[in-house]
Design a protein around this nucleic acid. Structure first.
Lengths: 136, 136
DNA sequence: TCTATATGTGAACATATATTCATATATAGA
DNA sequence: TCTATATATGAATATATGTTCACATATAGA
């Protein structure tokens, strides 16, 4: 779940370069003003990777189904497996990923482990995503 | 970008089954009340797959960087390539995916194609995600 | 029409990853 | 301690997918 971090080198630019007045900028292939503005305003690399990793975890239908199930009620692995229709082993593997990302938490009651969403922030985020999809 | 939709069969359940009174439910491995509540409240399968697909598209660092760049200003392919530090070809491939998902739109001005986020909804969603990550 | 430039895309390759299978661990009760 | 049950996990496999490379397409201007 960390396949995002392969930095890539820049391609050589064949466009004109050199000193540019505010006027001439508009004629360049690279629009310097825009580029500078974006470079200044875009979130830090680390943040962007964290964002991608977070979304990537949500970008799997098994995990999504687990999360929207847990958004309704805490559940044990067995119940999750039953509701989602996938093996308990597969559920367990995905829960591990969700655990490591601090998206779900769990409590033990004897042999049974109950999973739930880790906080209200995740809940509202899931609700937000659902709204977004339902509106399109 | 549609690798989510492999339905999986349910695993055989070895737990006890059959009629259960409200009392006996609590003693089963499968907690029927919870299962029924979740089955009733969980979003439809189609919605869940759409959600997973949407998040999966956001779950790539190249596409995330493109989107958070476009969240600041519309940009042409060349500029995007320069800002993000990845080949124009790779940018173009990713833009195609974002286009097909209606996450970005574009306008042509001569040879140059300017891309931008498709609507305010996407913008607010990206802002939301950023907040979420920055708070953790 | 011919050239230069900006972008788009198919195929190949390398990597990432979700599931299955077998097995391990943990807990409760006899 | 021994058994049954619930969950966890390592390895293997099949599939998915991001980038590169080569080339195609589109537009402007000579």
């Amino acid at each position: 779940m960390n396949g995002n971090n392969g930095k890539a080198g820049t391609e050589g630019r064949t466009g004109k370069s050199g000193a540019n007045t505010a006027e001439s900028v508009k004629t360049l292939v690279i629009h310097e003003a825009v580029v500078k503005k974006v470079q200044k305003g875009i979130p830090r690399e680390e943040i962007l990777y964290d964002l991608a990793d977070f979304f990537k975890i949500l970008g799997d239908s098994t995990r999504i189904r687990i999360l929207y199930a847990l958004n309704i009620s805490e559940m044990c692995v067995w119940d999750l497996s039953f509701v989602i229709g996938i093996s308990r082993s597969a559920v367990s593997h995905q829960l591990k990923i969700l655990r490591q990302a601090n998206i779900v938490k769990y409590r033990k009651e004897g042999k049974i482990v109950f999973y739930s969403l880790s906080d209200e922030h995740i809940k509202s985020f899931l609700d937000n995503g659902l709204e977004h999809i339902e509106e399109s």
